[in-house]
Design a protein around this nucleic acid. Structure first.
Length: 883
RNA sequence: GGGUGGUUAGCUCAGUUGGUGGAGCAUCGGCCUUACAAGCCGAGGGUCACAGGUUCGAGUCCUGUACCACCCACCA
């Protein structure tokens, strides 16, 4: 291997493509359920099959990949299941939009042809998202890829539906639901987004039937007056106690309705009188149910007034509103019009205003399934960060039955048939031949299931349920679910309910909830705002590893990530640094693995130091990942690789490499080991660059770093005390560098330096590491000794009690040095003052632990010592100036 | 209305048992020092939102206030 093995610049695009192909072809990440090792499985949160990868996916997938690659390094049997979601309404909308361009609607095609068209669309675009997952370097098992509408998963869906129906946990009923008049379907409560909107509050007079006066109600939706079946006041509202039980006329249509009383009414709001329209308002529906009111539907599923709207029949609800206001005015029933802001529900898919609508729908009795899911956390499933647990509880405690039927065509059709002759409802896995009554005129329910219904089964349906598969046996429950908090309710809680009900165990041991990625200003990224950062574009520009490292480094728990392109660009520098460190290593390593030396015994403070630091980083990496502190892991590796390995260690070994013989061999062996282990540590975050370097290093030819185990710890190299001596050497070097920089001495100029150590131990240490100091501080002469004379015109400093003196020859600004020393003395004085105040504090001395007091004493002593030395040096220098 | 998170260097953020406040970027100064100018060396910059409390000691724990963000519910 020559130094040309790695090109001068890192070219991510070519490298990434090559490794992607290799990993897929070699089936590196295909898991054997019967293989060795502790099982570790993750099911990917399935992205929308027709969607495109956004930055949130990139974060989500990166974190899972870090966990999976790390688990493999720890010798676990890892399965990461990839797949996609059919995303009912979203996908149907996309295809309908495409169809609209041809001037057609779905009804022009008919159900069968339309669904066929969506499948075609899926075939055409479904590959895109999978390809994008690949380009992120995800180490998923592609042989086990699933789709929520594939044959196996469809079977699982039908089975669950049938079982729940038979257990009475799925039922059909007439109920008020959220209706999207554009998508023509029911929406679950959490599919409705509320946002504030300007509107009017109309005060409308209702005359009492007995002619004894009138009541004024307030409404934001006058068009629903036509569906009123009651007027309601608070039972304890003294203004109205007299009218309770009487009747009132609904204006315009003059329908007689009862005046009822209910605690629900807020006496403070408006006039304290409420009109009740059970068919078109959720709360009114509840009221109607409690008070046995009629339900009169006046708006149809298109948002158009129906036959019960009398004269307004055929008008769109908006037009009807205007007409009614005019008519109320004419009838002198409109008392007042107020401008208000109130919140209005919108369809989460198409953003049109959601209409409360009464219809027959299917429901899951979530109220019965929820308690078990609640109890399971945190005992069986731990949520990270823990703060989300409360939110999880809160949702489950207030859960309502889940409306699962959707009036669209793309999805799992509800496995229920109605007999046209006897009216019997048959729920079955497969299409029944005939009814018990003998009739074969069976018609399947037109509706499909909410997308989240199949998603709720994902952790076990992807593993082969209801069959008893080896995968299910070996990999359920999964190790962890990695997801954003935005689908904690939609998805996580429902998986918990379904998993516990059908598998008798939770679907995952941990739930890690990561941040939402926002733009640099903290806004949610959206196409309409135009602030999206396209991960694929970022990979193209900066390389996948840069993107992955950025996301990992910012993935602090419980916080949103404000991402900007500059950050990714910034971390590209780190990728490059790794690359260049490797190039340096290759220039200094033999072609074959270097001859081994006994690492714990290897001579050289720098070797002992870096080996010790490496052990620390290994432990910290493990600890960080064990508690999902991805950012700590990334930061730790960043610092170690850049600020310690590159900035110091590689500089330290340069002299070693110029020698021949044992000293060079030792440096080679240590360098080779440390670099290889760093690469393994980095690999979960930066799979591509680490893989590429790995196979270029001695002993790496033809090897795949993805298969390497986490480097075993070397307790014998854990020598904190010895390694801490390196601090001293570094302080000396920095002291010289600082003087040089502050006095404007060119780095090219080699200096003389006199070191006057505080004691014999320091003296020996400096002597042993003389060459390191000379090279890194750029010295031509280094005197080490406790005695000796020092030239008066010298710059000076004190590091850990050791005097560092640089004789100033030639044209040097003497005043600058004096000012520098004074500044240093002021700083020392301040620190010393603070410490001495502490030591003078009686209660501190009495109550603080002995170790803390001891530390302060020591510190005080060394500060005093430094000040004495520095003052002496300053004095000498001042004297020199006078001459 | 209920809840959660945030407020630390110019910017974006770390800061896990309370014990000398950190990083990256930006700024300033100096460097082609044969791995790397996508780099190296050095420097400046903070009453840790505010007010109390606990403690010998608080960015860290407690209470309250302000502002910001988000979630849930409701808005006739």
């Amino acid at each position: 291997m020559t130094e040309d093995a790695l090109p001068k610049g890192y070219e991510p695009r070519e490298v990434e493509q090559r490794w992607c192909e290799y990993w897929e072809k070699s089936r590196t990440f295909t898991s054997d359920p019967d293989g060795a090792g502790e099982p570790y499985s993750i099911v990917i949160p399935p992205p929308n099959v027709t969607g495109a990868l956004h930055i949130g996916h990139a974060l989500n997938i990166t974190l899972q990949d870090v966990l999976c690659r790390f688990a493999r390094q720890k010798g676990k049997k890892v399965l990461w299941v990839p797949g996609t979601d059919h995303a009912g309404i979203a996908t149907q909308n996309v295809v309908e939009r495409a169809l609209a361009l041809e001037g057609k609607g779905r009804h022009d095609l008919g159900r069968e042809a339309f669904v066929e068209r969506v499948w075609q669309w899926k075939k055409e675009f479904g590959g895109r998202i999978l390809h994008q997952i690949k380009s992120l370097g995800a180490s998923v098992d592609w042989t086990r890829e699933r789709f929520t509408m594939d044959e196996g998963l469809s079977r699982a869906v039908r089975r669950v539906f049938v079982d729940l129906y038979r257990q009475g946990l799925i039922y059909r009923g007439k109920y008020i639901i959220n209706w999207c008049t554009r998508c023509h379907t029911a929406l679950a409560d959490d599919e409705v987004e509320h946002s504030p909107k300007k509107g009017s509050l109309w005060h409308v007079r209702y005359h009492l039937v007995d002619g004894s006066g009138s009541l004024t109600i307030v409404t934001t939706r006058p068009e629903t007056i036509l569906g009123d079946t009651a007027v309601c006041v608070h039972p304890e509202d003294e203004r109205y106690t007299a009218v309770i039980g009487k009747k009132a006329y609904v204006p315009i249509i003059k329908r007689e309705v009862p005046i009822i009383a209910d605690n629900y009414v807020d006496r403070e709001f408006g006039t304290g009188v409420l009109k009740v329209t059970p068919a078109h308002d959720h709360n009114d529906w509840e009221l109607g149910w409690r008070h046995n009111l009629d339900t009169i539907q006046v708006i149809d599923e298109n948002g158009v007034m129906n036959g019960d709207a009398g004269p307004y029949k055929g008008l769109h609800k908006e037009a009807c509103r205007e007409a009614i206001i005019k008519d109320l005015e004419a009838a002198d029933a409109l008392v007042l019009t107020e401008n208000i802001e109130h919140s209005v529900g919108h369809c989460y898919r198409c953003k049109s205003v959601v209409e409360p609508h009464v219809s027959t729908q299917w429901f899951v009795a979530s109220t019965k399934l929820a308690p078990r899911a609640r109890q399971a956390a945190p005992r069986l499933t731990k949520i990270w960060p823990e703060s989300w647990l409360k939110t999880y509880y809160n949702w489950l405690d207030n859960i309502r039955d889940w409306c699962i039927s959707r009036q669209i065509w793309w999805g799992h059709r509800i496995p229920a048939w109605t007999c046209q002759d006897c009216g019997e409802l048959i729920v079955a896995m497969e299409s029944p031949e005939r009814c018990a009554c003998g009739s074969d005129r069976l018609i399947q329910d037109e509706d499909v299931l909410d997308t989240w219904f199949s998603s709720a089964l994902w952790p076990f349906s992807t593993l082969g349920w209801p069959e008893k598969t080896r995968e299910l046996e070996g990999f359920y429950p999964t190790a962890v679910l990695v997801t954003g908090f935005d689908i904690l309710f939609f998805w996580v809680a429902r998986m918990m309910m379904m998993g516990l009900h059908f598998m008798e165990d939770v679907p995952f041991r941990d739930v890690y909830i990561h941040a939402l990625v926002r733009d640099a200003e903290g806004r949610k990224m959206s196409k309409s705002t135009g602030n999206v950062i396209d991960p694929i574009e970022m990979i193209d520009k900066y390389g996948c590893d840069s993107l992955r490292f950025t996301l990992t480094a910012f993935a602090a728990m419980g916080r949103d990530i404000r991402l900007s392109e500059e950050r990714i660009e910034g971390y590209r520098h780190f990728v490059n640094k790794v690359w260049n460190a490797a190039r340096f290593a290759l220039m200094n390593l033999p072609q074959t693995p270097p001859a081994p030396v006994n690492l714990p015994q290897v001579e050289g403070l720098h070797h002992q130091w870096i080996l010790h630091r490496l052990e620390t980083v290994k432990e910290e990496t493990e600890a960080a990942l064990a508690s999902y502190r991805f950012n700590d892991m990334a930061q730790g590796l960043y610092r170690f690789l850049w600020n310690e390995f590159c900035d110091w260690y590689l500089e330290f070994i340069k002299p070693d490499m110029r020698e021949e013989g044992f000293r060079k061999q030792a440096a080679q062996f240590v360098l080779w080991n440390v670099l290889r282990e760093i690469l393994i540590l980095l690999h979960p975050v930066m799979p591509f660059v680490s893989a590429e370097i790995w196979q270029a290093l001695p002993g790496g030819t033809g090897r795949d770093i993805a298969l390497e185990l986490f480097p075993p710890l070397r307790p014998a190299c854990r020598k904190a005390e010895e390694a801490s001596r390196m601090d001293f050497i570094q302080d000396i070097i920095v002291a010289v560098r600082t003087m040089r920089a502050e006095l404007g001495i060119s780095p090219a100029k080699k200096l003389t330096c006199i070191l006057r150590p505080a004691d014999a131990a320091q003296c020996a240490l400096l002597e042993q590491n003389r060459q390191m100091i000379e090279v890194l501080a750029r010295l031509e002469k280094l005197d080490i000794g406790q005695g000796g004379d020092i030239p008066k015109a010298s710059a000076s400093s004190v590091a850990q009690g050791c005097e560092v003196v640089v004789p100033l020859a030639g044209a040097v600004d003497l005043a600058a040095e004096l000012a520098r020393l004074d500044k240093e003395l002021v700083k020392l004085g301040k620190e010393l003052f603070a410490v001495q105040m502490k030591l003078a504090n009686q209660s501190f001395m009495e109550r603080a632990p002995a170790t803390v007091v001891g530390r302060e004493r020591e510190r005080s002593q060394s500060l005093v010592d430094a000040r004495i030395k520095l003052e002496a040096l300053r004095q000498r220098f001042a004297n020199a100036m006078e001459k």
